[in-house]
């Protein structure tokens, strides 16, 4: 229970960065922190106390493994997160080339 709550705190740090900061790179960092906390939350849900990794070893019975389904889903999520981060970084570089700054308020002012 306390682990879930700490994971939520990590999510909130990322959310604070996403809402409050004005630098685009900081916003990318906030997105990354949120993604990490979500991945960790999925894996925490599938953990079993004193369990073992879901890999078969010969002449051993498959009892007491951790849940393999969230691991398979988080594998997909990491890939999608990398794709999103790379796209956002390239967009930020394009903005820097056009306006000469990473500050989002300055971009709005220069628009007209």
């Amino acid at each position: 229970m306390s682990l879930y709550f700490l994971c939520f705190m990590l999510f909130c740090v990322g959310l604070y960065c996403l809402v409050r900061k004005r630098n685009i790179i900081k916003i990318v960092i906030g997105l990354g922190i949120i993604e990490y906390s979500l991945n960790l939350f999925f894996i925490l849900l599938g953990y079993r106390t004193q369990g073992r990794a879901p890999i078969l070893i010969s002449e051993q019975e498959l009892i007491n493994t951790v849940d393999p389904l969230p691991q398979a889903m988080v594998l997909t999520t990491i890939v999608v997160g990398l794709a999103v981060m790379v796209t956002v970084v390239s967009l930020a570089l394009r903005v820097y080339e056009k306006y000469g700054t990473f500050d989002i308020t300055k971009i709005r002012r220069l628009k007209g």
Binding site: M1, L3, Y4, L44, L45, G46, Y47, R48, T49, P54, I55, L56, I57, L62, T65, V66, D67, P68, L69, Q71, A72, L75
Partner: peptide, 29 residues
Amino acid sequence: LPNFGQPTMLVSREYLANSLTQGGLANIV
């Protein structure tokens, strides 16, 4: 939520049972 350390493995029980017979893969993920 369910308590930490006691997952409800409803779907993945099937995967754990059938992984080796269908496809012969030892790594279940």
